[in-house]
Structures are given as structure tokens and as C-alpha cells.
């Protein structure tokens, strides 16, 4: 699946040779009486400087942009970057995802990732669920990579596994 998405992106952007950053997010099945798909934000924070939001999954189709009312519940993302953005953001905003593993890939030099300056970064994934909880996971990495980089973390409540793959 990831390979397919990456290949499609590569064809679309025709930027062969650019590094690729791929994030896979597992949205767990929860045994709760009232289940709503979580809002999810995926972003990068450099050691110094402004964060970069890569993806925000929320209720983009509710009438009167009602779904934006709950973006603040992804509190860490809201503080770091969300509150300064004007939603929706092309190529960043997307619908909420169902239970399962979802992979999104980003090319260096292309929006929303852009050109990353060399340095230490943290990938953050935050999930907040209506009548549910909130969880933030992070994976540190150094940019650029010389070989393939892969790291995973596992959530306790709102997120399953989160995996970051970087190919130079």
C-alpha cells in the first residue's frame, strides 16, 4: 500500500531523487458505546523555528464548517501550529479515517513538507476523539538521512502504532 502511494506521488510530482517521509498511523478499534472517528493531526517540529503541519483529519464536510469547532481539542497541535492556520489547508486537510492503518507520504521540496533544513526534528501525531480521549505520540529524527530510517512508537489509548519511514 505504501509503495503504491509513494509511486503515485512520485509520478505526480515528477521529483525523482527527492527524499520521502512516510507516516503510517494505526487507528485502533475501540470497544466503546459511542464511537466517533478521531481527529488526527500530523506535524513536524524542528528544534528551533516554526512547526510544519503535514496532515489534519477532521470532519471537513459538516455544515457551516462545524467540524472546525473541535480542532482545538488536538491541544498540542492547536498550540504549536493549528491556531495560526486558516482551515481548510489544501493538501493538509482531509476527512477523518476509519479504524485501520493509514499511510501518508510527503516529498521533500513539495508542499506541505517543503525543504527541510538539516537538523533535529520531532514527528508528532495527535488524536482526539469526540466523547473519547486524547493522545500524542512523537518520533525524533535527524534530517537529512543517509540511509533508510525507520522508527515506530505505540500508543496506549487513542492511537495504535505510529511509524515513520524516511528514504533518502
Amino acid at each position: 500500500m505504501r509503495t503504491l502511494v509513494s509511486a503515485a506521488l512520485l509520478l505526480a510530482t515528477a521529483s525523482a531523487g527527492a527524499a520521502e517521509l512516510s507516516v503510517s498511523v494505526d487507528i485502533p478499534r475501540l470497544n466503546v458505546a459511542e464511537y466517533h472517528r478521531p481527529y488526527v493531526a500530523i506535524w513536524l517540529e524542528p528544534e528551533q523555528g516554526a512547526p510544519t503541519t503535514l496532515a489534519v483529519w477532521y470532519d471537513i464536510k459538516l455544515r457551516d464548517s462545524e467540524g472546525e469547532k473541535w480542532l482545538k481539542d488536538m491541544r498540542q497541535w492547536w498550540r504549536r501550529d493549528g491556531r495560526g492556520l486558516s482551515m481548510p489547508v489544501d493538501g493538509v486537510s482531509g476527512a477523518t479515517r476509519a479504524v485501520g492503518t493509514h499511510t501518508v507520504s510527503f516529498q521533500s521540496g513539495q508542499a506541505p513538507l517543503g525543504e527541510l533544513a538539516p537538523g533535529n526534528y520531532t514527528l508528532l501525531v495527535e488524536a482526539a476523539r469526540e466523547v473519547g480521549g486524547r493522545e500524542v505520540l512523537s518520533i525524533p529524527f535527524t534530517w537529512p538521512v543517509t540511509g533508510a530510517f525507520s522508527e515506530s512508537v505505540t500508543g496506549d489509548t487513542e492511537l495504535g502504532g505510529v511509524r515513520l519511514d524516511i528514504t533518502p
Partner: peptide
């Protein structure tokens, strides 16, 4: 009730 709000018209 809250101090940090999102959306265009909270």
C-alpha cells in the same frame, strides 16, 4: 467556559 477556540465563528 473555554478560552482557546477554533473555527471561524466560535
Amino acid at each position: 467556559a473555554a478560552t482557546a477556540l477554533s473555527s471561524d465563528n466560535p
